[in-house]
């Protein structure tokens, strides 16, 4: 119970600050655009992991193995769909030039 509470608090704060940093970078223009974009992406990825770990309780423990499998599977499908879409559309766009 207490452990859970601490995890949730930690997750909440982490998520909040990760979001905050991203917004701050854009708002105060701390970095040039390309670097900002990269940073926001990285922060978003970290945030995904925080959510999974703290809120969805995904871990490498045996009991959570099935969940982990499902997440990896989803990640693969999303990678296929998003990656494929990017390849196709950039290809089309290049040929329109």
């Amino acid at each position: 119970m207490r452990r859970d509470f601490i995890t949730y608090c930690f997750g909440y704060l982490a998520a909040l600050s990760l979001t905050g940093i991203a917004f701050a970078c854009v708002f105060y223009r701390l970095l040039p655009p390309v670097q900002t974009f990269a940073l926001v992406l990285v922060l978003a990825l970290i945030q995904v992991i925080v959510h999974m770990r703290c809120f969805l309780h995904i871990s490498l423990k045996r009991s959570a193995r099935a969940d982990l499998q499902l997440i990896l599977f989803s990640a693969m499908i999303i990678l296929l769909m998003v990656g494929g879409t990017l390849v196709v559309l950039f290809n089309l766009s290049a040929r329109m030039m």
Binding site: V87, V88, N91, L92, R95, M96
Partner: peptide
Amino acid sequence: TMGQSAGV
């Protein structure tokens, strides 16, 4: 037939 390259 909608415009991708032959490779794709």
